[in-house]
Write a protein that binds this DNA or RNA. Structure first.
Lengths: 209, 209
DNA sequence: ATACAAAGCGGACCGCAGTCCGTTTAGCTA
DNA sequence: TAGCTAAACGGACTGCGGTCCGCTTTGTAT
């Protein structure tokens, strides 16, 4: 599928000074293939870096050279889904994309994110376990800018930057997963809750069912 | 100081079947002493369990027998501060304690929590790094019940449980610390932001400065 | 073809959290 | 005081993420 990589998700840009050595390319494919298999077989949390190196028939150093750390690996596995998500809320059809009033876009954003977490939550959580720079990751910055913009459009003029930070905290994969998996809350209820939350925040009268 | 342990914070209750063996008591004191010293000297994140065992002149097994894991150790170090915090929002003077209108109590709760994180954030974060049961920890459950109650009193009748979850996510030590330490946001601004956020959520007209 | 630099590679190695299990000891009982 | 048992102890061990560094491969310049 086609997408514009607004913010580079993969660490290695395709327009670097050196393209990429052939053996490196081969190993990257091997690693991604093996990683997807292992995740499918054992689940995200059970996949270890040694396991991956072994399955891909590659040295452990190579794995870390490629992805930096475990979180980087998971981020790479998510990059397609993440790019599509970005695509949708920036260029896609309303209410998620431009065209709808900001309150509805905000509600749609949360709903989309919650469904995303329901689908990819374990990967998303694992991709954030980078030590001390979770919130500075490119996708997080983009979401933040987006929410902040919506808040401004909706007339939030008091520290919309912080308001956006608070709102995004609400959609943390860790917490949403806890509600979904451990508490057994249904997706629909969390979505409705988010709509209620966002609606209240922007002073919309609770949309009567 | 005096406090009521509403929800047991320390794993070992003082009223168990067997009181506590003398060597165990001695080692517990040694460990807590050593832990406080090490945290003061090197900071929370640099303290390792081996280090602690060594400083306390105790076997590593003893450390884990006592605290379960690293998060348990940090929780124990926090227990006094946490108990005092609980005390204040449940029995203390308004606006944090009972007596003030729910909106003001909610605002005060957030402010108090933010100051708490500014003071003990590193410990709080480390105490939550327990694998997969962060949100089920007794203090977190208590905060949740409290916020939910305040929301109900303030007239939030649509899924106050979920609303409380969302609100608490906002006060996550990890995120607040990121704003405070990495982004250099001043405590006062975050407090003001929280008031704004809580106020909007409960439909209060933004309290004119 | 050959030489050569740099990118890539691999696996031994490290530090840390957490476990296991044989040994020690406190405290009770006779 | 001697004996007994359960609790406590301690440190070797495991598994994992991540690093290091000497070796190999690739692509290029001659």
């Amino acid at each position: 599928m086609f997408f514009v990589s607004l913010i580079p998700i993969r660490p290695e840009g395709s327009s670097g000074p050196q393209p990429e050595r052939s053996d490196a390319a081969r190993n990257r494919e091997r690693l991604l293939q093996a990683a997807r298999e292992l995740v499918a077989e054992h689940g995200v949390d059970a996949v270890t870096m040694d396991m991956l190196a072994c399955r891909a028939e590659v040295g452990k150093g190579t794995v870390f050279r490629r992805f930096g750390n475990r979180a980087g690996l998971m981020m790479t596995l998510l990059s397609d889904a993440e790019a599509e998500f970005q695509q949708r809320f920036i260029f896609g059809p309303p209410p998620l994309g431009p065209g709808a009033p900001p309150v509805e876009r905000l509600m749609a954003f949360g709903e989309a994110r919650i469904r995303y977490i329901d689908k990819y939550g374990e990967l998303a959580r694992a991709s954030e376990h980078s030590p001390h720079n979770r919130h500075a990751a490119p996708p997080a910055l983009l979401w933040h800018r987006h929410i902040e913009m919506l808040l401004r459009e909706a007339g939030v003029d008091r520290d919309p930057w912080l308001m956006a930070s608070f709102l995004i905290a609400t959609l943390d994969p860790e917490r949403v997963l806890y509600a979904l998996r451990s508490q057994g809350i249904e997706v629909a209820r969390i979505e409705a809750g988010w709509r209620e939350f966002a609606g209240r925040l922007l002073g919309c009268p609770p949309d009567a069912k």
